[in-house]
């Protein structure tokens, strides 16, 4: 499974990006991430929309390629399930070293 992630916005207005092949992650981490993403209805997230409640929230752009299945959502942080959001934040934060 391939993930292309982008987190933008927040008061600082910084954009962080990460591209991940779950097969290239340590085995357990990769498996957990695949299960987490497959459990989440990414298309459903997209329907909840990117408009935030309030202001200065993070906006997530999540694109998934899983075999033949492709999905993408641009969504305000409060609409992303907390467990998935934490996993995405860890992957993004790793880009900063």
């Amino acid at each position: 499974m391939r993930l292309a992630l982008k987190r933008s916005g927040g008061i600082a207005g910084l954009t962080l990006r990460a591209e991940v092949e779950t097969e290239e992650l340590p085995e357990e981490e990769g498996r957990e991430l695949r299960e987490l993403v497959r459990r989440t209805n990414i298309e459903g997230l997209a329907e909840r929309g990117s408009r935030p409640r309030g202001a200065d929230r993070y906006q997530y752009d999540v694109a998934v390629e899983d075999g033949d299945h492709r999905a993408r959502a641009v969504v305000s942080g409060e609409h992303v399930p907390p467990e998935l959001r934490s996993a995405l934040d860890r992957l993004l934060q790793r880009q900063l070293g």
Binding site: G10, I11, L14, R53, G54, A55, D56, R57, Q93
Partner: peptide, 23 residues
């Protein structure tokens, strides 16, 4: 945890402690 943001949630002002790397 390592939350590098502050936001208005429609009712409150919410503040993180930063990630310690950039913010």
């Amino acid at each position: 945890e390592q939350f590098a943001n502050a936001f208005w949630d429609g009712r409150r002002m919410v503040f993180g402690d930063g990630d310690g790397v950039i913010l």
